[in-house]
Design a binder for these strands. Structure first.
Lengths: 106, 106
DNA sequence: CCGATTGTTCGACTACTATCGAACCATGCC
DNA sequence: GGCATGGTTCGATAGTAGTCGAACAATCGG
C-alpha cells in the first residue's frame, strides 16, 4: 500500500463562500487560479511567472486555496498536481468562477 | 453651502477585483451587502440583525466596503445613506455580484 | 447658542496572515 | 540502502486587519 499522503479537502457541498472569496482576494493566488483555469499544473509550475518564491510560501498559498476548496492537490508519483475544482465551484456557486475569471488580469 | 463632508469613493473604472473580493470575504460585511441589495440603508440600520455592534466597528466595515468600491456612503441631512454600487460593479465585473448574491446566506 | 443625534476618526490592543529558512517526509532511481 | 528530488510542515518574525472606547465633527431642534 503506497503510503497515502493525501491532503484534506473539503467536500463540494460544504464549501463556504466567504472562504472562497478570501482565497481569491490575494493577487498572487488569483493569478495562479487564472493559470489553473487552463489546466492542472504541478506545484513547481505554480511559481509566479518570472519571480521565484520560496517553496514554503508557495505551499502556504496552495494550502489556503485547497482549504477553501478552490483547488485540489493530488500526489502523483513524486510530484503533486494542482487543479481547479471548477465543477464543484460552479455547482455550489454558479457563475462565480466565470465572473472572476472573466475580468481581465490587472 | 452646507459643509460638504463627502467621503472618498473610487471611481467605477478603477475598481480592483481583489479588493472587492476581500471586502466581500468577511461574513458580517457580506451579510450587510445582501441586505443592501434590497435597497439603501442608513448607517444605523446597517447593524447586524439582533446583535449590537459598536459604532466604530460598523464604521470600519463600511469604510472597507466603500474603499473597495462596493458601497457608496452619502451624507443626507444628519444621517448617511449607504447603498450598493450595483451598476458600477456589474459594469466592471459582470456577473460577479449576481453570483455572490445568488448563493443562499449561510 | 446649547444639547442631542448620527457617524467618522484616532489610538491601543489583539488576532490573524504573509513570508521565509530549516526540518521533515515520501518517492523514485542507482 | 543511500541519495537526490519534490513538497509539506514547523517556528519565528513582520505586517495587516478586526474590535472597541473615547474624542471629534456636522447637523437639527429647542
Amino acid at each position: 500500500m503506497p503510503g497515502a499522503r493525501d491532503l484534506p479537502h473539503p467536500d463540494a457541498a460544504s464549501l463556504v463562500l466567504t472562504d472562497v472569496l478570501f482565497a481569491l482576494s490575494d493577487p498572487s493566488r488569483l493569478a495562479l487560479v487564472r493559470r489553473l483555469a487552463q489546466g492542472p499544473l504541478e506545484v513547481a509550475a505554480c511559481q509566479p511567472t518570472g519571480g521565484e518564491v520560496p517553496k514554503s510560501t508557495l505551499s502556504h498559498h496552495l494550502k489556503t486555496l485547497r482549504e477553501a476548496g478552490v483547488v485540489r492537490n493530488v500526489p502523483e508519483g513524486r510530484q503533486r498536481y494542482v487543479s481547479l475544482r471548477r465543477e464543484d465551484l460552479d455547482d455550489r456557486f454558479p457563475g462565480l468562477l466565470d465572473a472572476v475569471l472573466g475580468t481581465a488580469a490587472e
